[in-house]
């Protein structure tokens, strides 16, 4: 791989752009394809599927054996609520490869001391979220229980392509949340995207186990066929 291709790859990652490197295995000839330009490419179908399934692989083509290396944007997790469960969720998500941002307007919660080495924002979600690219590689969880904080955040998430949206709270809390958001004009179809009560049902007890249940549900949403989740 030449230096120009390497630089383009690293730049694309910084800008959260999906790109692929196509390598002709017999000769080592390489080219970089942006997902945005994939449609006109001679390998358009292979590229489209690769980006969608986040899957790199070798393909037989009339030009010979090609390795298509997919580089989708890094996974990111946005957590609303610098609460106890968030403290358990952050290291699990980081280990699974997610860049984590924690947002909570309550300054006493959103401290670097409670959340070392990650992006902590002591601000209102609706002020911070416009600066963050919520896309198909983003998971979003609302953990405060407080409608003043969670509702505007969920509204922003629902207007984005986040692959996972979850909200903490009992079935009753979830029910009243859906009523409020529905009254605010969000469609039933869109509201179905919210996983609530949050997390796979593994009988979790306490913050660390709830965090595992949440991370498991996020992983299922990411890796299973999207139609199954």
């Amino acid at each position: 791989m030449n230096k120009a291709t390497l630089q383009s790859l690293l730049e694309a990652r910084g800008k959260r752009l999906a790109v692929a490197v196509v390598t002709e295995l017999a000769t080592g000839r390489q080219r970089l394809v942006k997902a945005a330009n994939g449609q006109g490419d001679q390998l358009a179908d292979i590229l489209e599927q690769g980006f969608r399934l986040d899957r790199s692989g070798v393909h037989q083509t009339p030009e010979g054996e090609m390795f298509v290396a997919i580089q989708n944007p890094a996974l990111q997790l946005i957590i609303i609520g610098a609460v106890h469960i968030a403290q358990s969720l952050v290291p699990i998500a980081a280990a699974a490869g997610y860049a984590v941002t924690v947002i909570d307007p309550r300054g006493a919660f959103a401290t670097e001391q409670r959340f070392p080495n990650i992006d902590v924002r002591p601000d209102w979600p609706d002020e911070v979220l416009p600066e963050i690219q919520l896309d198909q590689r983003t998971a979003f969880v609302a953990l405060t229980h407080d409608p003043k904080i969670d509702d505007p955040a969920l509204t922003a998430a629902l207007s984005s392509d986040c692959f996972y949206i979850g909200a903490l709270g009992s079935k009753r809390t979830q029910g009243s949340r859906i009523e409020r958001l529905s009254a605010a004009g969000i469609s039933q179809e869109n509201l179905k995207r919210i996983h609530g009560p949050i997390g796979l049902d593994i009988g979790a007890r306490g913050a660390p186990e709830i965090a595992i249940a949440i991370m498991a549900e996020i992983t299922a949403a990411l890796r299973h066929d999207r139609s199954r989740t």
């Binding site: 791989m1 230096k3 390497l6 295995l25 692989g57 070798v58």
Partner: peptide
Amino acid sequence: QASGWLDEGRNVALATVIE
């Protein structure tokens, strides 16, 4: 990291699992 090594003037090879 590999890019950093290149900047330091080192020779660098890259191995990628393809199948």
